[in-house]
Nucleic acid binder design. Structure first.
Lengths: 219, 219
DNA sequence: GCAAAAGTGTTTTCGATACACCCATGC
DNA sequence: GCATGGGTGTATCGAAAACACTTTTGC
């Protein structure tokens, strides 16, 4: 390969983090408002360019840490976006990653040098997005629905302990359909995704509920 | 983003095609022998760099056409390889794609400006491979095993018509385990992956067999 | 007539779904 | 005492797996 050939140069790699949560029964995605051109003042996904001396996963963690304060979560890759004109001026290959997090862990700054604001958006009420991010969000949601039972993807949605009704409601919000409570519990326990902690919730609900946690290694 | 920052520059994108076939009951991968440095005279996957003005899938088709003569086959993406030092001098992001083809359709040149030779290798008798291609081949095989029933991935393995024993044997070679003939036929027909053509094979086998074809659109 | 290869049907098991009742608490 | 929310068990259905016999042909 001729490394100086301009046709091989002038391209970069962009990681795009689609970060979802479920808050008060609403399935939401984290977006940031762009302070600069291109797409100034529009909303877009969290993301950024990969340095030539780092791995893609490291770039992703770096960008997400900077922009949301979140660390130590697992992302999964779901898509490649390679239209040469998807970004202006410079060809940026887009690599789409997904994570589902506990919204209470997000401690992003509302304003940074590149960002006016950052907010959770109901995925059913999204504003117009910059670049091809609408397509990417749609792909991420489809991927999440197809892989929700893989046992890893929701592990950061809750604090260590959670109740089964909470998890059940989260599944229903994400999948956008009803699930039978009894079969839901049975399946998650049988598959070893969650385990009973022996603890009970202390909330002021009508009836207290058992606390579960995600199993250390699932499947 | 500052496009002139060298930390964003000096990187490229590499597509890697893991092309498999089944020939005489042996599961094989196509490798090429490198004529130039780096890894001169070693075997490696078919692949090449993506131009900054083309889509990844187009680069893949271009490279595969040049090096094997094969056109119009479908590839599936299975992996991203991003160690910064996986290629010398220049950071090349690797994108792994897989296809399974009819070996009789491969009309690659034995020798080109970049290639000494190209050959099918039994996946159980692979030579040492250049770059991180051993890892990539292993990932591709794992991906193929997990996705063999998706109904699209084997569509180019045979000419239009094939017998069920042929397909059955191919599955067994790829999965490296025995499958029940009766359940195999039932499942593929029930799922609409293949359809009976009403034709019979004319080979000089002990008993002639029905000819099948892959269904136009599966699932 | 027998070995080799191809075709077909039945039974069993297991996972997924559908569904109903009891218990604890706040009002 | 009743409405709300949380816990549990059983019956049914369908897909997957296990399994045996018949047919054709070459020798």
């Amino acid at each position: 390969m001729n490394y100086s050939n301009p046709r091989y140069q002038n391209q970069g790699i962009h990681v795009l983090a689609t970060i979802f949560t479920v808050e008060n029964g609403v399935f939401k995605v984290l977006l940031i408002n762009r302070k600069n051109e291109p797409y100034k003042n529009m909303w877009s996904l969290v993301g950024g360019a990969v340095y030539c001396d780092e791995r893609v996963e490291d770039a992703l963690r770096r960008e997400v840490k900077e922009k949301t304060g979140i660390e130590n979560i697992s992302f999964r890759h779901f898509g490649i976006y390679s239209r040469p004109d998807r970004a202006p001026k410079f060809r940026m290959l887009g690599l789409g990653y997904i994570a589902v997090v506990d919204h209470q862990e997000v401690t992003f700054l509302r304003e940074t040098t590149q960002t006016n604001n950052a907010e959770w958006f109901d995925i059913k009420k999204l504003p117009p997005l910059a670049f091809d991010h609408e397509e990417i969000v749609a792909d991420a949601i489809e991927f999440l629905k197809a892989n929700i039972n893989d046992g890893e993807i929701l592990k950061e949605l809750f604090p260590q302990y959670f109740t089964l009704p909470e998890l059940h409601k989260a599944y229903e919000c994400i999948l956008d359909r009803k699930l039978d409570r009894r079969n839901f519990r049975k399946k998650l326990l049988k598959d070893g995704i969650i385990e009973d902690t022996g603890l009970m919730s202390r909330t002021q609900k009508v009836k207290s509920s058992k606390l579960y946690q995600f199993a250390k290694l699932s499947k």
